[in-house]
């Protein structure tokens, strides 16, 4: 049944776009955060459709797990006033809409003109081993630099969130 992946693609695309629009358009920021989790889960399903199972697992762990929890915590810690009107538009939302729409039109025109030459060849069934080889072989130095970046971000986030009271 060849149409199964197409069906899943349209289903996941509808989920992703609808929940992304809900993230942007809803007025309650807690609802926005929950729809953001739904968007991340939809993107993880798309990765499974693209034969990237390891990336789908990483997406679920990092985005739908860690990043969503961080954002919900930030919402909780910066809550003030009415939660039902906590996610409003700012003064220049019309300009933002025009810019985003123009960018989407440009992207669609540009990618629609391109004729991609797909290389024939089937993807291997499981590519976790290939990803491991790439990380510890060809991309070993960026891998280590990413580790240092994560450490720096962690220390920086702790320092920033702790505040400047220890200065005086």
């Amino acid at each position: 049944m060849p149409d199964m992946s197409a069906l899943f693609f349209w289903l996941l695309a509808a989920i992703i776009i609808a929940s992304a629009l809900a993230v942007v358009l809803l007025k309650n920021i807690v609802h926005s955060a929950l729809y953001l989790v739904l968007t991340f889960v939809g993107v993880a399903g798309l990765y499974i459709l693209l034969n990237a199972e390891f990336l789908a697992a990483v997406q679920l762990l990092v985005y739908a797990g860690a990043v969503a929890i961080l954002i919900v915590f930030a919402v909780m810690l910066t809550r003030r006033g009415d939660i039902r009107a906590s996610n409003l538009f700012n003064v220049n939302y019309l300009a933002a809409a025009v810019v985003s729409l123009a960018l989407f039109i440009v992207i669609t025109l540009a990618t629609g003109r391109m004729a991609w030459t797909a290389t024939p060849g089937q993807a291997p069934a499981g590519n976790v081993g290939a990803i491991a080889d790439a990380f510890l072989g060809h991309f070993a130095i960026p891998f280590e630099i990413a580790a240092v970046l994560l450490l720096v971000a962690m220390v920086g986030a702790i320092l920033l969130a702790r505040g400047g009271k220890q200065d005086q």
Binding site: V24, A96, S100, I107
Partner: peptide
């Protein structure tokens, strides 16, 4: 591939609109 590129472009533009037009820094 063009389907995926269109989906990525649409999601990018929705995110751009959210980043430019929202009042709350978390949003």
């Amino acid at each position: 591939l063009n389907h995926y590129l269109a989906l990525g472009g649409l999601l990018f533009c929705i995110g751009l609109f959210g980043a430019l037009a929202k009042r709350n820094a978390v949003a």
